[in-house]
């Protein structure tokens, strides 16, 4: 029996700023997880990652991150990904400054 595929987003860091980015459905990079494209199909996710890896002049280190579908779009399943949506906890820096 095939194991159940955990939905995923493609995420990376922007080349210039280092800021966390996500692949959106329109193929652009977005800074907001809510706008990320959530892949529920394993093959589609793997293909999207391959495409992202070819865009080395835009982002660094793309990978697939586990998510669940929530009312506001993808939601992290792990605390590391939750921190990446906000920024550090000691100062209101990073994404939490603007979002």
């Amino acid at each position: 029996m095939a194991s159940v595929f955990t939905p995923k987003v493609v995420t990376a860091n922007a080349l210039f700023e280092g800021d966390v980015v996500y692949l959106a459905a329109d193929g652009d990079w977005t800074r907001r997880l809510a706008e990320a494209d959530l892949f529920t199909n394993e093959a589609a996710a793997a293909l999207a990652l391959l495409d992202a890896e070819a865009r080395a002049h835009e982002v660094v280190g793309p990978y697939l991150a586990d998510m669940t579908a929530g009312p506001q779009g993808p939601q992290p399943t792990h605390f590391r990904e939750a921190f990446r949506t906000r920024g550090p906890s000691n100062y209101a820096h990073g994404k939490q400054e603007t979002v």
Partner: peptide, 20 residues
């Protein structure tokens, strides 16, 4: 990035969780 990474590390530049 694979070519650049060892060069930036030699000069103290990391890519961390939210930024360089």
């Amino acid at each position: 990035e694979d070519e650049f990474k060892p060069l930036r590390l030699m000069n103290g530049l990391y890519l961390q969780l939210h930024a360089y």
